[in-house]
């Protein structure tokens, strides 16, 4: 049987031009373990002679290389440089730092990063150097390198040059509208819980606070990775809502209103069977309020709908009205009662 299967037969087989008997023979031939290598060798050769598309391997290699090298740095405190000649860069950075001494090392955060912060009850929009728009919700901070998305050269040394990654670090909640760059530079959002969001030109909201981490995608595509756990990257499609719970489990569900998660941009609050407990968490995170709910039954009551509110008091009034309950506020302490 073996001798009837040769390269020509296999090429015809790949092209779908063999008789059923020949196909059977190929199947038998494949049962021989050694022939499997041969099979893939010929498949490769056949594919090369029948290419369906062209693709630039160099760009793809750079992308994967910078992803791999970049992520291995994420766990260390200063994720400064993600690129191939990492050793050389570090050497340069190290000697410069030594030269400038410990003092400037203390201020390196200020020197190297731009940080945007919002206080309680405040939202703010920023345009990043690459033209991407970010809107920060209350009590959040966003940090990015000063050379973000640009190329800076010192002779042969390049900072952020070959790297095809724009990296921002987010604590809290923000809505992103990422600009797609002609050189396909990726945009990555790092969150404290280790979930990384890689973007390919897109609109999405990232929520990363103590109680959980969520990502909602409105358009385009993003990829989620958890570099600390060995999990395969997860590709999100528009309308997907990804949640990372306290145990570090990543789950994906469809949501009909992905824009609802960014309604705070219009000073609106959107609830969908949202419990008073969750609303209390939100009030704590966004306005720094300490909320007490008299009993569990009350905490489990829910609200649905989208409502405008400009500040904490308006939200409190709204919630009290909708649930027909009372609240009292002294400074930052709020108590809900029946």
């Amino acid at each position: 049987m073996e001798n009837i299967v040769n390269k020509t037969v296999l090429f015809d087989y790949f092209s779908g031009r063999v008789s059923p008997l020949q196909k059977k023979a190929v199947e038998q031939w494949l049962a021989e373990p050694d022939n499997r290598e041969r099979y893939y060798e010929w498949l490769h050769e056949w594919e090369l002679s029948q290419l369906q598309m062209d693709a630039n391997w160099q760009i793809a290699f750079d992308k994967v290389a910078s992803d791999v090298v970049g992520q291995s740095l994420v766990d260390e405190p200063p994720p400064l440089v993600r690129q191939r000649r990492i050793g050389q860069i570090w050497l340069a950075v190290a000697s410069v730092l030594l030269f400038l001494g410990f003092g400037s090392w203390l201020f390196r955060d200020k020197l190297l990063y731009e940080t945007v912060q919002t206080g309680f009850g405040e939202t703010r929009s920023v345009t990043l150097p690459d033209g991407s728009e970010v809107t920060l919700n209350a009590n959040s901070s966003l940090r990015y390198a000063r050379w973000f998305g640009r190329q800076i050269s010192f002779g042969q040394w390049t900072l952020g040059g070959k790297q095809r990654v724009r990296t921002v670090e987010l604590i809290g909640e923000a809505d992103f509208s990422v600009r797609h760059l002609p050189d396909q530079q990726r945009f990555v959002v790092l969150t404290p819980k280790g979930l990384n969001v890689t973007v390919l030109g897109t609109q999405f909201t990232v929520f990363s606070r103590e109680r959980n981490t969520r990502v909602v995608l409105r358009s385009g595509r993003v990829q989620l990775t958890l570099p600390r756990v060995h999990q395969r990257p997860l590709l999100m499609k528009p309308g997907d809502l990804a949640t990372l719970d306290r145990k570090g489990q990543l789950a994906l569900v469809k949501t009909v209103h992905p824009e609802a998660m960014a309604s705070w941009k219009q000073h609106r609050f959107t609830f969908e069977l949202t419990s008073l407990r969750e609303i209390a968490d939100m009030l704590h995170e966004n306005y720094g309020l300490q909320i007490t709910i008299k009993h569990d039954q009350l905490a489990d009551r829910t609200i649905s709908g989208s409502f405008p509110a400009r500040d904490a008091n308006e939200v409190l009034q709204l919630v009290a009205q909708l649930l027909q309950i009372n609240y009292s506020r002294e400074d930052n302490r709020v108590t809900f009662t029946d």
Binding site: H44, E47, Q50, A55, W57, A60, F61, V64, A65
Partner: peptide, 19 residues
Amino acid sequence: GFETLFRLYYRPLCSHALR
């Protein structure tokens, strides 16, 4: 190693996946 792998196999692999 990976640069070589990409150079040799990336194109035909993409082409095959495209099928």
